[in-house]
Simulated scan of single mutants.
Amino acid sequence: MPEPTEQEIRERAHKLWEQAGKPEGRDEEFWRAAEQELRNEDESNTLRTPDTL
């Protein structure tokens, strides 16, 4: 799977930041968390295989 784009990371980080109550000075923390979440989603999607009969 391709790496998450900067825009995808930015959007996820913003969402996480809002959910955390918009704390100041933690932008890098939310960026890394968003990047990791998106990578984990990609990994879990590649682990799933369709059921075949």
Rank of each mutant, 00 (worst) to 15 (best):
M1T: 09
P2H: 11
P2E: 14
E3I: 02
P4A: 10
P4Y: 03
E6M: 01
E6L: 05
E6W: 06
Q7R: 12
E8V: 03
E8I: 02
I9M: 02
R10Q: 10
R10I: 01
R10D: 04
E11Y: 01
R12M: 08
R12Y: 01
A13Y: 00
A13R: 01
A13P: 00
H14E: 08
H14P: 01
K15I: 03
K15A: 11
K15H: 08
E18A: 03
E18C: 04
E18L: 13
E18P: 00
Q19M: 10
Q19S: 09
Q19T: 06
Q19G: 04
A20C: 09
G21E: 09
G21N: 08
G21P: 05
G21L: 06
G21M: 08
K22L: 09
P23K: 11
E24F: 00
E24M: 04
G25V: 01
D27C: 03
E28P: 00
E28K: 12
E28Y: 14
E28D: 13
E29M: 05
E29A: 04
E29Q: 13
E29S: 07
F30I: 06
F30G: 05
A33W: 10
A33Q: 15
A33K: 15
A34L: 10
E35M: 10
E35A: 15
E35Q: 14
Q36K: 15
L38V: 04
L38G: 07
R39L: 13
N40P: 01
E41A: 09
E41N: 09
E41K: 14
D42Q: 12
D42H: 13
E43G: 04
E43Q: 14
E43P: 02
S44G: 01
S44R: 15
N45H: 10
N45K: 15
T46F: 00
T46W: 07
T46L: 06
T46I: 02
L47F: 00
L47Q: 15
L47G: 14
R48V: 12
T49K: 14
P50D: 09
P50M: 05
P50E: 13
P50Y: 14
P50H: 11
D51Q: 11
D51S: 08
L53Y: 03
L53F: 00
